[in-house]
Design a binder for these strands. Structure first.
Lengths: 211, 211, 211, 211
DNA sequence: CATGAATGAGGTTTCATTCAT
DNA sequence: TATGAATGAAACCTCATTCAT
């Protein structure tokens, strides 16, 4: 998998029969299993197919190459997390600023915790496959947050986009750090509290100060 | 490179002659060059040796295996960054809290920017090789920061270690996000300002609030 | 496709319904299209079926294996060319020798030119599949030519069969050379003239000289 | 091996140690052996390496891909045949026309017979790999023959290049036909005589007639 | 009859590592 | 000490063919 070659990531064919749909899902599931159980180095198409209970040939009927397989799994996870964050942003509009932040951050942390294993697994493959996908979802979240903030009573002018980007990056970094350390539930709760505080204080600073 | 096998990462022999030192350094340098120019997938020992102008055999005289090579490069970078941060912490003792944070954050950001290319290159190999090294330097930084904070006039009790960890993780996340996006010098300046603000406001919140 | 295994090349079932005939022909046609468009390496049964607008399963209803498919296409082409050459031989009996040669050679060249693309396509698969078929049609042509020559007024004794074989091989070689070079219509005309002259002078030499 | 993709055919590295030279030659030799013994379909890089008594890895040290291996073997053979034909052309200058043709044709036939097995083997791979190489040697031969003919006492004007091309193609076609039929030595002698006659009479016709 | 999902042996190629020179 | 030829396990991916639906 060359890092810079652009390859078609699109699924090779869309399953039409019910049987095929089951197959595709079992392959995606197996990818995560192998990633968690064996590590990124040992994630081979053959091993994934084995774990999924199908032949390699079948795997390649639906995914044109190894990257597309990883890409699909990553996309799926990012999509789910992004969706709940967008929804939270929509739901929190017009609330007080600190409530907004609390709601969004907690939603994000909860979504990641709920799929902690997948999250950890994907950190390993994201650099190989996730460049554009990550940018895309970051942009979606940023827009959702901007739109939410614009409805905040405390805020006059439109918020600084760079600050939102910063906040998202800080959230991801903190989240990742704890997930990779295999944090306990107690640790996760602490992370959630602190991350809320961190984001609230940063946003408050941004909106009052004139950086 | 199996993810879980523990292999000796220590350099095979320490260069005693001047010529050998030059060789080792040219190999380390070549590793980064190849990583940046060809990507992690195409980073092979043969290619590194070629780029360094030595034979593979020679490479293996100084590094027992590929991992140790990556490890050495990563260690070297982390060591340098950690050192300047530790020094900054020492230097900032007894200053007002916000000055402390400013000094440490700016030192960190400056160090990463100064070696932006290396930083970006290493993000790709860190998951394969850096686990323990990352933890170790994080711990060193955390201790340095704790010691610094304990000398802050505003602070009564010893600061929450978890909060420091959070701050470091947030810093890394934000830093990485901008570096991987290939941020311009202007962007870097903005990052520095915002990161100072983010950390200051978070630390302030931590020390005043009773989370 | 092993080179030496003998497999049944016969079509699996003969189409009786009109619909089936259409299917078989569209498959044959698709084979040539794929061969010309994608090359011999990329000629797969799936691709042929796709191009023909049927499923692989259907393809295998009419052709027991890939070789039989190629064989059928080759046979079809060879049969057509052989037929017109045989007819020309019959038609040219009792004419002067040089007229005979002219008629046969021009008929051959015209037939190949008329299906230039097919000819070129088949050169790629003939070595894999055509051994016996090629021998068979060469023999048929040789016999037709011998019978024609025996009716020539200039010829006393029965002509040398080896010389006929030589002439046919020379014709094929020259024809192939020009077809593979993608010769223009003007080039084709020149080929026709020269090939007539070549064969005429060779035949004249054979019949007069005492080789 | 896609038919249309252009890949570097150049040898990957030139052997510097004596051992390596032996290796390269044993690989080339093995390629021909496998081609003759197992057929084009069963010619795999693994099999060639096995037959050569080296590992696949070694094969790939000297040949960047399968095509380059076939190409090298083909080139080598074509080069040798072309060389003797060029020499014969040079040697036959200023002789009578029919002696010229006799000398060149016999040289060509002898060269092919001397390496009959290689010739037959290469017919199978030429379409996949030989396009340009074949054109190149044909051009070299054509030029050598033209230069020879220009020194013929009987010839006034420069000979028609197309006619030379025709003659070469006819020679190749006849040669191939007999080689692929596995002709006996007696057959080969007959081929040589007839091919001389065919070319002599064609050239005579060309130079006297005004086609 | 037609479909297309599934198979899996087998192909090409890479690359970390060793060791004779 | 340095070299670079050699190794071979193991990776990715293709495709002729079958068979349940």
């Amino acid at each position: 998998m060359a890092a810079d070659t652009l390859i078609a990531f699109e699924p090779r064919k869309t399953p039409v029969q019910a049987r095929a749909t089951v197959t595709v899902e079992s392959i995606s599931e197996a990818t995560i299993q192998v990633l968690l159980g064996q590590g990124a180095e040992r994630l081979t198409t053959t091993r994934v197919a084995d774990r999924a209970g199908v032949s390699v040939g079948t795997l390649y009927q639906y995914f044109p190459n190894k990257q597309s397989l990883l890409f699909a799994v990553l996309e799926d996870h990012l999509e789910k997390v992004t969706k709940v964050v967008e929804d939270a942003c929509e739901h929190a509009r017009h609330k007080p600023l600190s409530d907004m932040i609390k709601e969004v951050v907690e939603t994000f942390v909860n979504a990641k915790i709920a799929r902690a294993d997948i999250s950890v697994a994907l950190y390993r493959i994201a650099p190989d496959v996730g460049g554009q996908a990550l940018e895309r979802v970051t942009q979606r979240m940023r827009r959702a947050i901007v739109r939410m903030l614009e409805s905040a009573p405390e805020i006059k002018s439109s918020p600084d986009e760079f600050a939102i980007q910063m906040m998202l990056a800080a959230m991801s970094g903190a989240m990742r750090s704890v997930l990779e350390a295999g944090g306990s539930p107690a640790m996760m709760r602490k992370l959630r509290e602190h991350l809320v505080l961190l984001c609230q204080s940063y946003m408050a600073a941004i909106t009052t100060n004139l950086i």
